[in-house]
């Protein structure tokens, strides 16, 4: 077990350091993300100016929500290199490795997250006072529950990632079109861009029951102290318990139907 963890840690470390070698222009991506969050914060100030709390959400809480959504962006919408591996055909080599396939991709994603946490998330948190945002969680309890909820959100997100991957194989769907749909739907339904509480009540309530909301909306609500933390975490656990067996089953039946794209 410890030896296995060592292998996954090595995969993570390689992914983290590969960032510098493969994509030294990542700084431009980070600047664009910084610009995005700056604009979003300014826009919320305009939209919510002179408005009292909306469903318990005050303007400072929405600003914190927006900032933390960007700080933990990759974790709130977790993606691995699964699509890239399909596209390049390197999935074949991955399947030959004596490591669990899901764990390989997860370890690799975690490696890039480690790098991003140091290179982007931490500096953004430190910049929060300059952006006029209070970056701390609503309370120490909220901070602790946020970590649990974030881990559960990552679990749900990764399960969705592997389910989509399996469906691509089983239904022989075009990779990038499905990825495009998924990105657009996740952005809308997860609450990472727009807090679900600010949508029309019926729509927000409907979205909050979907698995996408367990990825981002739940941990972010807990962080700012809005919503019932226990209920949110329970929903996340339920989605995690429902989606992982489905992901395993879909990969089991789809394994032999894998056709690599190659090239």
């Amino acid at each position: 077990m410890i030896r296995d963890l060592g292998k996954y840690w090595k995969t993570s470390a390689m992914a983290a350091t590969g960032y510098l070698g493969d994509s030294p222009l990542f700084v431009i991506d980070y600047l664009m993300r910084l610009l995005r969050v700056t604009v979003l914060l300014a826009i919320w100030r305009i939209i919510l100016a002179d408005k009292g709390p909306i469903d318990g959400l005050t303007l400072p809480a929405v600003l914190t929500y927006t900032l933390i959504a960007e700080v933990f962006g990759p974790q709130l919408s977790p993606r691995t290199n699964l699509e890239g591996a399909f596209w390049e055909g390197s999935i074949v080599g991955r399947m030959l490795q004596p490591l669990n396939l899901f764990a390989q991709f997860t370890a690799e994603a975690a490696g890039t997250w480690l790098f991003e946490l140091c290179a982007f998330s931490l500096p953004l948190l430190l910049l929060a006072p300059l952006l006029g945002v209070q970056p701390l969680p609503a309370s120490a309890t909220a901070g602790g529950l946020f970590i649990i909820s974030l881990l559960l959100g990552i679990s749900v997100g990764l399960a969705i990632e592997f389910i989509f991957g399996a469906l691509l194989v089983l239904l022989q769907l075009p990779l990038w079109s499905i990825a495009q749909i998924r990105t657009a739907l996740t952005t809308l339904l997860s609450g990472a861009l727009l807090p679900l509480a600010l949508l029309p009540p019926a729509v927000g309530a409907l979205f909050s029951w979907l698995p996408f909301a367990s990825m981002a909306s739940a941990p972010l609500q807990i962080y700012i102290g809005a919503g019932d933390a226990l209920a949110l975490i329970t929903i996340q656990i339920c989605w995690s318990l429902a989606l992982w067996p489905l992901a395993h089953w879909l990969w089991k039946i789809g394994r032999e139907r894998m056709v690599s794209y190659g090239g």
Partner: peptide, 16 residues
């Protein structure tokens, strides 16, 4: 997929 993406991109602002 183009239609869904296009609708999803504007739906958030429409709902707001």
């Amino acid at each position: 997929s183009d239609a869904i993406t296009s609708i999803a991109l504007v739906t958030g602002m429409l709902l707001l």
